[in-house]
């Protein structure tokens, strides 16, 4: 059988994809909690650290997903899901396209948080904006984690 790009190491990449996704989910939940406290006037210096971790881990998840994708596209989607479970292909397509949509907000939170003075009242609207960005990213991450797990129960690479 002809080998696909990155197929020999696809299982290792999939594990790293999963690990980075857990890091991204955790940092995003922490970030949202910190923003909620910040809007009430409390400041946690870890906000900038969590934002940096979210941006890096999301980018890593995104790139690793892109590397695994050729193997998934042929061995799972083409050979099984498209014909036998077309709705599962629909779930996957929403997952991958949603991941692209959330990429700029995930990196954008970090870029913006670096410049916010959390003690200045005139910067509170920016904290709110960061909260919306992080909320959008968390929504995509939760769906993608669920869809990734569920599709893996049907067939994996």
């Amino acid at each position: 059988m002809q080998s696909l790009p990155f197929e020999p190491i696809s299982k290792a990449l999939l594990f790293l994809h999963l690990a980075a996704a857990f890091v991204a989910l955790g940092s995003c939940v922490h970030l949202l909690a910190r923003f909620t406290y910040a809007l009430r006037g409390a400041y946690f210096p870890q906000v900038k650290l969590h934002a940096r971790i979210l941006a890096i881990s999301y980018t890593v998840v995104f790139v690793l997903g892109g590397l695994i994708y050729p193997t998934f596209r042929i061995r799972v989607r083409h050979d099984y899901l498209d014909a036998a479970l077309p709705w599962a292909t629909g779930l996957f397509e929403i997952k991958e396209l949603g991941a692209s949509i959330a990429l700029i907000p995930a990196i954008g939170v970090w870029l913006l948080v670096r410049l916010i003075d959390f003690r200045a009242s005139e910067h509170r609207p920016y904290i709110f904006a960061c909260m919306i960005f992080a909320g959008a990213v968390l929504t995509v991450l939760v769906y993608n984690a669920w869809a990734g797990w569920y599709l893996g129960t049907l067939r994996s690479i």
Binding site: A84, P86, W87, G98, I101, P105, I132, A136
Partner: peptide, 29 residues
């Protein structure tokens, strides 16, 4: 601007879901 971004992201997600609706109505082999 934040509300407009949120709306833009929501519309994009709805657009993506609508794009994929054929997969959910297609009969399996």
């Amino acid at each position: 601007l934040t509300a407009a971004i949120l709306l833009c992201l929501a519309v994009s997600m709805v657009g993506i879901v609508r794009e994929q609706r054929n997969w959910f109505t297609k009969k399996p082999a």
